[in-house]
Each structure stands twice: as C-alpha cells, then as structure tokens.
Design a protein around this nucleic acid. Structure first.
Ligand code: MN
Ligand code: MN
Ligand code: ZN
Ligand code: ZN
Lengths: 140, 140
DNA sequence: TTTGCAAATGCAACATTGTTACACTTTACA
DNA sequence: TGTAAAGTGTAACAATGTTGCATTTGCAAA
C-alpha cells in the first residue's frame, strides 16, 4: 500500500477530516518510522506551516491513536507513529524509548517492553514510560 | 541534626558558597522529602525570589548531587532531594517516580528500582528513568 | 579585621513550548 | 450544490528556560 493510501486510511480510522496540514504532518511521521520527532522539527522543515495548527494536529493525532508521545529527557515532547494496535483513546505502545545524547534523536524500541514494577499497594498504576538514554548505534 | 546544620553540611559537601537563596531553596527540598517540586512551585511560594537565580540554583544543586531531576509526564521538570549516595557528577538515585494525575504531585519511589532492560547490542546505555503515573494513595 | 577577587545574583533580552479566543475557510455529506 | 460542523490562521498570553552583563556578596588570605 502506498503512502497516500495509508494516510487516507489512518485519517478515516480516526474519523478525522482529510486536510492538507494533516496529510503533510502524517506523511512526516510515516517517513520517520520509529524515530520520534518534535513539533519544533516539523515546524522548521515546513516554514509556512502554522505553529498553532501543528500543535493541535499533534494533539488530535495523539487522541485518536495515530501517534504516541515519547517522554524526552530534554523536556520537549516528541511523537512517533503508533503500532497497528492503537486506537482512539487506547494506546498500546508499551515499549521503551531511547534518547541519544549525541544526535539528540529519540527512537522507539518496539522490542523493549516496560516491565511492570511492584508498587506500594495504595498506588493505582495507569501508565508507565521507560526512558533510556546514552549513545545510539549510529553515533558510536 | 537540625535543618540548618544539614543545609550547611550539604552546601559544604558540594563546595558551594552559603548564600541566602541557596539556603532558602535547599530548605524547601529538605522539607519536601520524597516529593519532587518544580521551579514554578518554589517561585510562587517566594514571590521576591529571582526566577533566573532559581533556575541556576537548581542546575547547580543537580550538578553537585544535592537534588536529582525527575522526568515528568507533564513536561515540566521537577527535582527532589538526593539520597546520601549521590555526589558531584555522580547520581545514584536509580528509583522510579510516580506522577499522580489527580494531585499532580510527583513522588520518589525509593524502593522501586529501575530494571535494567535488554537493549539491542549497539546501544550504549548510560541513564534510565521509569516514569509511572496514575492515582496516588492520598487521592484514592 | 580588613580587603581582594571569584562566585553568585539580579536585570534585561531573547527563544522555545504551549494554550485559548475568535473570525474565517474548508470539508463532508444530505 | 448548499450548509453546518470541523479545521485553520491570527493574536494574545503564560510558562519555561538560557545567555550576557553589571553589581553585590562570601570567603579566605593577608
Ligand atoms: Mn514509541
Ligand atoms: Mn527521585
Ligand atoms: Zn545518536
Ligand atoms: Zn495524588
């Protein structure tokens, strides 16, 4: 299936209207693959793309399960395309993320599952994120 | 040992000059205990405390191993007092942090160690953070 | 105890990140 | 094809953080 077709499908699945901004942004995520990208990176790449619309687009994509957020040590939030299993208000990306201190890229480690920790009894666990950092293979 | 004495000791250990801002801020962290606090919270509590000096103070405390950063799902960084084992440029707080979605507090779970994940061979792991979220005991 | 100087502070200026309100435009579908 | 809801662009604002620079302060040597 070609990219345009995938974009169209994903938007339909999320019950989202097909607009030029959404198609543009979604294409970026599909091309980025397991690399998580920040609002800033997209903004710089497309100079005439409105910043506010972009924030809203990311938020919308996240809500409907098209992209998921990766907590970043640097503080800025980054997003990556979701696995097939994600849907509206139900994310299933329970994998770790790796932040490279050299190239500053964040990548999804789809095969590194987050272990379920033993919490004190009175805590009700809903989400967990495992944020790893160091130097990535490409940078060594 | 009383608080003033502990403050004085910690600053000496970090080879830091004893200034009014540092004593004030450090007192906050000692009182907060395992609760991580944000720059904003301190700023609001002490209206005439200079924002920039506060940021620099937090950075310095972190560098010398007095406080450690807790990655927060909300994006803003929070800090908590370090365990005894931390020293300049060498943090030893390898514990998870819990963010309560109701009270928005972040607490150190000193007893929840971060499991060492199995990474692809070419990744060089240096740090790891386990960020848990849900509802804390007090809020249930 | 005084004094010199490095360290720390306070202020200005700036950048990034994000949110809300509101008028305008576009999309989807009846 | 017309319409209503959804989406966009602009402005305004708030939070978060950094750097440069002049002034003040802590501290140790004299
Ligand atoms: Mn991911
Ligand atoms: Mn902690
Ligand atoms: Zn790298
Ligand atoms: Zn709570």
């Amino acid at each position: 299936m070609d990219v345009e077709q995938r974009i169209s499908n994903l938007l339909k699945l999320g019950k989202l209207r097909s607009t030029s901004v959404r198609k543009l942004v979604l294409k970026e995520f599909l091309e980025a693959g397991t690399t998580a990208i920040s609002s800033y990176e997209i903004e710089k790449k497309f100079e005439d793309l409105d910043r506010i619309t972009l924030y809203r687009t990311l938020k919308t994509f996240e809500e409907v399960g098209i992209i998921h957020q990766a907590v970043d040590v640097s503080g800025r939030s980054k997003y990556a395309i979701c696995s097939e299993d994600c849907s509206t208000h139900q994310h299933e990306d329970h994998h770790a993320h790796f932040y490279c201190k050299k190239c500053e890229k964040t990548v999804c480690l789809d095969n590194v599952k987050i272990p379920r920790p033993n919490l004190p009894a009175d805590f009700q666990l809903e989400d967990s994120q495992l944020v790893l950092s160091g130097v990535c293979g490409a940078c060594r």
